[in-house]
């Protein structure tokens, strides 16, 4: 690949990363660091994006399509507990040891996403704690929102006693 093509590729990825709501208002210098760990990926309908128990080596920012987050129990069909779509994130287990997925994520529509190499990004966060802090301020609201949603689902408010 020529330098020109590489440069255009970097610019394209920077634009895609900046356009994703998860990275809204990302500083220029962080954008360069993040893009160094990013690539475009695509999953067809039914394809697994990640599987429970496997190493959390990457996470995904969905650009198009929708994925179902599922938990499987022996002898039962997989239960979808959440779906995520454009502008949302698949995978938070890459943030905390032991860096293993705790559920499956399956494309229910064709998914186009930005894949971020977790080890690469963790390394950059370790080297630059300010980047690490920036990443945490983006992930913590998602975690809080999902925790709150899980509480509501556990309450079973639409059930007989709801």
């Amino acid at each position: 690949m020529t330098e020109d093509l590489q440069e255009r590729g970097r610019e394209g990825m920077a634009r895609i990363v900046r356009e994703h709501p998860f990275f809204a208002d990302l500083k220029e210098e962080y954008c360069d660091l993040v893009c160094g760990c990013a690539k475009n990926v695509r999953f067809e309908v039914g394809e697994y994006i990640l599987r429970e128990g496997e190493p959390a080596n990457e996470f995904y920012l969905i650009r198009e399509g929708r994925a179902a987050l599922e938990i499987n129990a022996p002898g039962r069909t997989g239960i979808t507990f959440q779906t995520v779509g454009p502008g949302e994130v698949v995978g938070v287990s890459w943030l905390v040891p032991p860096y293993r997925w705790t559920y499956d994520a399956r494309a229910v529509e064709r998914v186009r996403a930005i894949s971020l190499d977790a080890e690469c990004l963790r390394g950059k966060c370790d080297d630059d704690p300010a980047l690490g802090y920036d990443m945490m301020t983006r992930f913590v609201p998602i975690l809080v929102q999902r925790l709150q949603a899980t509480r509501l689902q556990l309450l079973d408010v639409y059930g007989r006693d709801g």
């Binding site: 929708r66 179902a68 997989g78 979808t80 507990f81 959440q82 779906t83 779509g85 229910v108």
Partner: peptide, 9 residues
């Protein structure tokens, strides 16, 4: 379960 193609949450 798998037959539902709409949003979950």
């Amino acid at each position: 379960t798998g037959e539902w193609h709409g949003p979950v949450g």
